[in-house]
Amino acid sequence: MLDFMSTLSPSMAGMSSLLTVLDAIESEPAAVELRARSYELLGDLTGRTVVDVGCGSGRAVAELAERGAHALGVDLDPEMIAVARRRWPAGAFQVGDATELPLETESVTYYRADKMLHVLDDPARAVAEARRVLAPGGRAVLLGQDWDLIAIDSDDSATTRRLIHEKADALPSPRVARRYRNLLLDAGFTDPIVEVHTAVFTDDTALDVVKRITDEEDWLAEQGERAHANRILVVVPIFLVAAQA
């Protein structure tokens, strides 16, 4: 699965650039802490089977394995699975669809989907699939951003609002993160826990982020000037929801 500022499937020419941005974002202290919190909300990982759906370049699968889990990464993009296998040769990765997982019913203890549901036309179908593959007493954790709630400091607030909404509306399910709790309840999960974390970017990563929102030159020029003057600010609320199968 493609991470924070990706669109859908990148071309080969754009893969290296995309991975550079994703690696920078995933290395941010807040992102490291958020992943760790998602693992904590799953529960005791030792010896448990975990499927990470929309695994992208595979970092979470490697981290889950380090914590003692039998982790499987599933992603629809064969290029991303190839990257994951190169980076983490000891990991288990498989091309697969979030709405039709290559897993038996009740075959895993934990399910994790990180910044993935917004690229699906029918997120509810993926959550129902999570419920199918989880064993009784298992847990699911969903996390991701609500694209309408991104905040960017700018001298042109009207254009900024327009560009954020245009980016959101170009995605299949840009507001799904605010629906995580209800999607889980609708699929038969119980006892949901809802948290909202905030990713704050004030360095070159922030400029990479805004460049993936739009190619509007005048607005990007202002953001570039802000970055050069150490005045750029991008804030992204991340929803983190866990529930019991």
Rank of each mutant, 00 (worst) to 15 (best):
S38Q: 04
E40V: 12
E40S: 13
E40I: 12
G43D: 04
D44C: 12
D44P: 10
L45H: 02
L45F: 06
T46H: 13
G47V: 07
R48K: 15
R48M: 11
R48T: 10
V51S: 03
D52N: 04
D52V: 02
V53G: 03
G54K: 01
G54S: 05
C55H: 02
G56V: 06
S57K: 11
R59N: 09
A60G: 09
V61I: 06
A62V: 11
E63L: 09
E63Y: 07
L64G: 00
A65R: 10
E66V: 13
A69R: 03
A69S: 07
A71C: 08
A71E: 02
G73P: 02
V74D: 02
D77N: 12
D77F: 01
D77P: 00
P78R: 11
E79T: 15
M80C: 07
M80I: 09
I81C: 06
A82Y: 04
V83S: 01
A84S: 08
A84Y: 04
A84D: 04
R85Y: 08
R86S: 14
W88E: 11
W88A: 10
A90N: 15
A90Y: 13
Q94F: 08
G96R: 01
D97N: 12
A98L: 06
A98V: 05
A98G: 11
T99W: 11
E100C: 14
L101Y: 04
P102Y: 03
P102L: 07
L103W: 01
L103G: 05
E104Y: 10
T105M: 11
T105S: 14
E106Q: 13
S107N: 09
V108N: 00
V108Q: 01
T109K: 14
T109V: 14
Y110G: 02
Y110M: 03
K115N: 14
L117H: 04
L117A: 01
H118I: 13
H118P: 13
V119G: 12
